[in-house]
Design a protein around this nucleic acid. Sequence first.
DNA 1: CATGAATGAGAGTTCATTCAT
DNA 2: GATGAATGAACTCTCATTCAT
Lengths: 194, 194, 194, 194
Amino acid sequence: MGEKSVQKKQFILETAKNVFMEKGYKEVTMKDIVDACEISRGGLYLYFNSTKEIFLEVLKMEQDETDDVFGSSVPDNAAASDILALFLKEQKKELLRKKSSLTVAIYEFFFQNKVPKKDNIIRSQFDTAVKIIEHLLDEGVKNGELYCEDSLGTARNIMFVIEGLKISAQTMGITEEMVNRELLYIMRGLVVEE
Amino acid sequence: MGEKSVQKKQFILETAKNVFMEKGYKEVTMKDIVDACEISRGGLYLYFNSTKEIFLEVLKMEQDETDDVFGSSVPDNAAASDILALFLKEQKKELLRKKSSLTVAIYEFFFQNKVPKKDNIIRSQFDTAVKIIEHLLDEGVKNGELYCEDSLGTARNIMFVIEGLKISAQTMGITEEMVNRELLYIMRGLVVEE
Amino acid sequence: MGEKSVQKKQFILETAKNVFMEKGYKEVTMKDIVDACEISRGGLYLYFNSTKEIFLEVLKMEQDETDDVFGSSVPDNAAASDILALFLKEQKKELLRKKSSLTVAIYEFFFQNKVPKKDNIIRSQFDTAVKIIEHLLDEGVKNGELYCEDSLGTARNIMFVIEGLKISAQTMGITEEMVNRELLYIMRGLVVEE
Amino acid sequence: MGEKSVQKKQFILETAKNVFMEKGYKEVTMKDIVDACEISRGGLYLYFNSTKEIFLEVLKMEQDETDDVFGSSVPDNAAASDILALFLKEQKKELLRKKSSLTVAIYEFFFQNKVPKKDNIIRSQFDTAVKIIEHLLDEGVKNGELYCEDSLGTARNIMFVIEGLKISAQTMGITEEMVNRELLYIMRGLVVEE
DNA sequence: CATGAATGAGAGTTCATTCAT
DNA sequence: GATGAATGAACTCTCATTCAT
């Protein structure tokens, strides 16, 4: 595939991502993507054979971007509790950003496609997040900022709460206040009060 | 619609429920239900006009059944912590029952149908569960079995964890061990150790 | 068929007539009539086997009523030109009564059902009207009120104009003014000016 | 749509026109046209979305052709009365051409689609014809060939008679003799007898 | 590489007609 | 007589997928 084709493929993926953000996963047809990309029907098939194939590549793209973000954005000399708070704030922003998120599409996709653990982006992102939180908790405890007896258990607990908030945001709807309340509840149990 | 038809309607709903458990919500077509019920194309339309209509009635049916269960199954003179443990065990069973659950269908349905709060079964079940847990916690604290400063906050936290486990079960897959671990984590923070 | 059944049949015909006036002929389904009559599907089939059958009986009913009207409403000792004017006025009223007329239904019916001359209500009504007009013209000429060399030809001409107005009313729409103009044009050619 | 498609679109319209001539307007389904064109179900939808859309384009096509004919076929130096006779003869041919005419389809279409005056082909053709006849009458009077006091009124009268003949041809059936008789009746009133 | 016309399978929906009760 | 549940044929419309150009 020439360089030009690589660009076109990239363009299709970016455009398709928007479509998935709009309509979720199941609803999206090849026609939707063809229309959004303003290319020919046959043209799309030169690059992808199904919405599933496209979605998988969109996911991979997403994952790469997320990895980058994760790696870069952590301030070096910040206090662990501050970083944790920052992390939670980030999650909150994501949670409340109703539209223009792949969340629903990802859920729909994984509902019907049972993928092996290692390819499961939800799983790997969950695990990564747990590890990061665990590490932050350990740091916080070491520094005396935080109190936590079981950092791994707590990290997992936090992530399940966040997952719970995430799905609730998409199904029953949640307000910013509700998210704040939950995150506060979590932090209250961790921060050492003077 | 005569008495006979009520039975048939019920039969269709039961059958359709199985179809939704099998295939989720979006995937299901009127034809799927026609085939499952072994009735004629037109026959189904005598009772329902769309899968959405059917699904809504299946949900209502479900909810009624759940209400019954909730009302009846609580032992009278049990210790609060035991009832709570029982409740969590029930949730666990539900969580791990991969197939033959409407969970995925319900998620898919509420992804695309934003219904008013009061009609949102997910919301109302969530709220009901929170109230029950809160009450149990209060009882437990009163009896000295449990320790909990903010029973409402804790109840909500527990339910969000359960929601998190529920969606995780459907997307990344979870083992019984994982569920146990989480529920244990929750209980550990509540039970007064001697 | 008992007396009761005769009444019911009559009721169906009256109701069906309204449906045909509303929707024309082709559009009407057995279901439409069942719904309008608020009887059972099977019930209708006890009396009629198709919309065509129903329409034919509606037509016959209509024809009988029209015959009655024609017979009774002619004042005995009136001047021929006055009766003619009255007749034309009646036609005008009919023409402009857009809704609640069987006109369109009749047209649609005869477009696709080529019936033998004698059963063709349009034909027989046309012929009857021609005869009446011809007679009136003859009378008028005899009395010196009217001038007309070819009473039969004129009668036919008048009726074709009226047919033309009738179809125009249903297709391109006509105003009262337009009808007046045409009828005036006709009368001007007939009335002896002093 | 490429050049090739334009040809195909044209082909569909021509074929559809025949279908409409056969079956009228209301009766015709997309499937009828698909079958007549021997194309695929989906193929037709590439060009048109409904029988209404197709019929409207067939009408436009027809109108264009008619306009051409009107413009070209008038001999230059002919006597007005001859042209008028020619015109009426043309109408007669049209009238008697029972099958293979869009007449019925057009009537059916305009029965249920009330279109604005300017888009109403029946109306505009009627008006055009009136103008032409009026002009011919004026010419004829000027030349002393014809006698007519109210050329516009007469023109309109003639056209309503023709409309009446047209609808009668489709509903009660008319013979060539009947048409001749009517046209003769009209001409007799106009031609100056020596 | 790219196009877009073409196909055909399949979903939704409506009704005429039948038939057990 | 009367009911209305049930059937199945027919129609509309949309897409995934192919293929000649």
